[in-house]
Design a binder for these strands. Structure first.
Length: 591
RNA sequence: AGGGCUGUCGUUCAAUUGGCAGGACGGCGGAUUCUGGUUCCGUUGAUCAAGGUUCGAGUCCUUGCAGCCCUGCCA
């Protein structure tokens, strides 16, 4: 393998191209430092996974670092439950952060930076009401008008801001604003709010503060303090970038005037020593993930949870990390998905089929195989002795013998899948029909001799005879058998509950709905199917919760992490079905 | 004339920065198979539009068109 060092590398996403360029020009001396900055106001979902894989992946690929930083500047929306779940999900996905910071950990420094902005004449306290501010902001085509408080003296602003902090003022009395340009075409620059009064208990700082910094003020400055080089966020923040730059640049300008810090020399020294102020961070935006058939907005996900459409954040139908985990998706499959979808700037919606492909591919390699009957019907082998039991040894994985094997008992009465029998089978149906010979997986060839029905016409029993010469599921004469079926010995099988999940929504795009409807009107009440009368082979009895496996011919499953109890109550979640070409044929024949 | 961003197979991401538009998923067809699974092979199919520059344009220029974001004291 010869690597041409200066051969242009193809297929890199635009962010990596930017980093390559920065490395060439020596912008950060080859340093790459990213961060994943969630607000702890909800659980992580697959859209966050894209951002996580990007930010942590960059750190990995460029020998850099990636911080976890909770963007916790709005105490009324945030909670420790969410920070705990975010940390757990991140670890489960397989990523290790270099440092775990909190925006709230910077409240002190941010406060003094705000004072600095005031001293620089770059910020002022505005006593207009929220409504007045909105009214004076202007419109898309017309400039805003200056606040009557815009020209207060520095000392006046300083006194007022300190009063805000002191806690004497009620919420909404006044606000600290950046003094930029009320006529800017970009609204973000029309004197944006920097600090607001909120008498609210913060999940980390308690009641230390009654003023909290706004996102734009906090984010860029936090990046700078941490020495972030590439601050990657989603497209809707493109308009915020000039404000991001204004905050960082204003601080850097302020740091060149140490005298402004006055009695706060300590803070100055701390700030000036941070790496980010010699090599400032820049913000880059990429398109957030959309997937067909689901919603990926925290607001909508929280609504599904709170209004009881799902059982919780980890309901296996949820596109949350915890939902996918409980459903049986592996971290590897999610990471693979995130790599395949790419990173770009155009809004796009990825087909859910790609995610399914990723799990199937991963699970095909790693999931041990078992037999289980979902919709059982009795199969009686009439020429098989009542008291006889065969024990067949079957490999746990067809392509990897390191998985070992397990013993599967066989007896006269078996459970088979109702859908594997047809009274009037068409030619393309390879399974059981009267007079047809099929293979019972790893056991015997059997020939159907007849079936019984009850008064309602339901098939109650299927009868067959077996060929003792085909023990193990093959014959010396090499006769061709088209169909192979799974089975479970009725005497030895264990009853289990199986939960089949399908799309939560009845529409491909729950984000755009008919007039007068909302996305919850498209929740599919049948998206969870609970099967309580399933029969599985005895080897499954002691399976640990969270274990992935395959029911041959049916799909990939995972022992539920909440309700499955080894040895007593078996509960299996269907991760996804196997690809089913018979279903396709049926569909074609139905047309 | 508000500002910002984006338009490439059905979907998604590429195209050595002006040099034969490629891969993945999906679809279709076939081979193999003790899972109608897996694997393997083949196939389908795209540069938003119109002009211009050029030997040569997805890429550069001009003019349109379409979509997304921006008037929170949310992030």
């Amino acid at each position: 393998m010869s690597n041409k060092v200066d051969a242009p590398e193809k297929g890199k996403d635009f962010i990596r191209q930017i980093i390559d360029k920065d490395n060439e020009t020596g912008k950060y001396q080859g340093r790459v430092h990213t961060r994943f900055p969630p607000e702890p106001n909800g659980y992580l979902h697959i859209g966050h996974a894209k951002s996580i894989c990007l930010n942590f992946g960059l750190a990995r690929d460029y020998n850099g670092k990636c911080n976890l930083r909770f963007d916790d500047t709005n105490p009324v929306k945030e909670d420790v439950e969410y920070v705990d779940s975010i940390r757990e999900d991140l670890r489960w996905l397989g990523f290790k952060w270099d440092d775990n910071f909190y925006a709230s950990g910077y409240f002190d420094k941010l406060y003094y930076i705000a004072e600095l902005f005031i001293k620089m004449g770059k910020a002022y306290v505005d006593h207009q009401s929220a409504d007045e501010i909105r009214g004076n902001r202007g419109t898309l085509k017309e400039p805003g008008t200056n606040s009557p408080y815009r020209d207060r003296t520095i000392q006046e602003n300083l006194d007022l801001f300190r009063a805000m902090r002191a806690g004497d003022l009620e919420d909404g009395t006044c606000i600290l604003r950046g003094k930029i340009d009320m006529a800017a075409a970009n609204f973000m620059l029309r004197d944006p709010a920097l600090y607001r009064i909120k008498h609210a208990e913060h999940h980390r700082t308690g009641d230390t503060w009654c003023i909290y910094p706004m996102y734009d003020f906090t984010h860029g400055l936090s990046d700078a303090m941490e020495g972030i080089t590439h601050s990657i966020c989603t497209l809707e923040f493109e308009n915020n970038r000039p404000l991001y730059d204004w905050c960082v640049n204003t601080l850097m300008e302020g740091l060149r005037q140490p005298e402004l810090f006055g009695e706060n020399a300590t803070i100055y020294n701390e700030l000036a020593a941070l790496p980010g102020f010699n090599e400032r961070p820049y913000q880059y935006e990429f398109a957030r993930l959309n997937i067909t058939g689901t919603v990926l907005s925290k607001r909508k996900l929280i609504q599904l949870v709170q209004e009881g459409y799902v059982s919780g954040w980890d309901d296996p139908r949820m596109p949350t990390i915890s939902g996918f985990r409980r459903r049986g998706y592996t971290p590897e499959s999610i990471r693979d998905f995130c790599e395949r979808i790419g990173v770009a700037k155009s809004n796009s919606t990825v087909e859910f089929a790609l995610l399914e492909h990723c799990v199937r591919q991963d699970l095909n390699e790693r999931a041990p195989r078992y037999l289980g009957v979902m919709d059982p019907v009795k199969l009686v082998i009439e020429n098989y002795p009542e008291d006889q039991v065969d024990e067949f040894t079957m490999p746990l994985h067809p392509e990897d013998e390191s998985y070992g094997e397990r013993a599967v008992p066989f007896s006269r009465e078996l459970w088979m899948e109702r859908a594997d029998f047809m009274e009037d089978p068409p030619k393309k149906f390879f399974r059981m029909g009267v007079g047809r010979e099929v293979r019972l997986r790893s056991a015997y060839y059997v020939t159907c001799t007849g079936f019984d029905k009850d008064a309602d016409g339901n098939i109650t029993k299927i009868r067959a005879t077996y060929d003792p010469e085909t023990k193990g599921g093959w014959s010396k004469d090499g006769r061709k058998i088209k169909g192979t079926m799974h089975w479970v010995s009725a005497r030895h099988g264990i009853q289990a509950e199986i939960r089949n999940y399908s799309n939560l929504f009845t529409t491909e795009n729950p984000n755009s709905v008919e007039e007068g409807k909302t996305f919850v009107d498209y929740v599919d009440p049948d998206s969870l199917e609970v099967l309580t009368n399933c029969w599985v082979e005895p080897a499954l009895a002691d399976m640990e919760p969270g274990t992935n496996f395959q029911f041959e011919r049916t799909g990939y499953f995972c022992a539920d992490t909440r309700d499955h109890q080894p040895g007593s109550k078996l509960v299996f979640n269907r991760t996804t079905t196997l690809r089913d070409s018979w279903a396709k044929i049926q569909k074609q024949m139905g047309k």
